[in-house]
C-alpha cells in the first residue's frame, strides 16, 4: 500500500499545543458566559437576542474548530478545510431551504391545522385519560 511513517514522523503532523488548548478553553468559557448571560440577565430586546446567540455560537464553533480541531492548520493542500467549507455550504442549503419550504407550506395550511388541532384535542380528551 503506502510506505509508512514512524511514530516520531507522525507526531510531527500533530498540531496541538498547550497554548492552543488553553486559548480554546478561555475562548469557549468567555463566549459561553456571554451567551448564558444574555438569556439570564436579559439586557437586550428579544429579536436581537436570537441573532446575538446565533453569532456567539458560530464564533465559538469557529474557535473550537481552530483551537481544538486544528482546522486550517493542516499542510497544503488543505483538503480538510475545503471539505468542511463545502459541507457547510450544502448544510446551509438544506437547512435554509427546508425552513423556507416548511414555513411556506405551513402558511398555506395553518388555517386547517388550527381546526384539526381543536378536533384532535377533543378526541384526545375522549380517548386518553
Amino acid at each position: 500500500m503506502s510506505t509508512d511513517l514512524t511514530l516520531k514522523e507522525i507526531q510531527k503532523e500533530w498540531h496541538g499545543t498547550y497554548r492552543s488548548y488553553a486559548l480554546g478553553l478561555l475562548f469557549s468559557l468567555v463566549l459561553t458566559a456571554i451567551s448564558f448571560g444574555l438569556v439570564i440577565l436579559n439586557p437586550l430586546p428579544h429579536k436581537y437576542v436570537h441573532i446575538a446567540l446565533l453569532v456567539l455560537a458560530v464564533v465559538q464553533a469557529a474557535g473550537q474548530l481552530v483551537f481544538f480541531l486544528h482546522l486550517g492548520q493542516e499542510a497544503h493542500p488543505r483538503w480538510e478545510t475545503l471539505i468542511f467549507s463545502f459541507t457547510t455550504l450544502i448544510l446551509l442549503i438544506i437547512v435554509i431551504g427546508t425552513l423556507w419550504v416548511m414555513s411556506d407550506l405551513n402558511e398555506r395550511t395553518m388555517e386547517n391545522m388550527e381546526n384539526m388541532k381543536n378536533m384532535t384535542n377533543m378526541k384526545k380528551d375522549m380517548v386518553h385519560d
Binding site: 419550504v101 407550506l105 398555506r108 395550511t109
Partner: peptide, 18 residues
C-alpha cells in the same frame, strides 16, 4: 443537484415563489 429537490413535490402546495 442540491438546489432542486422540491420539484419532486410541486403539487404538495407550496407557494408560486417556492
Amino acid at each position: 443537484s442540491y438546489l432542486v429537490w422540491l420539484h419532486h413535490f410541486f403539487t404538495m402546495g407550496a407557494s408560486p415563489y417556492v
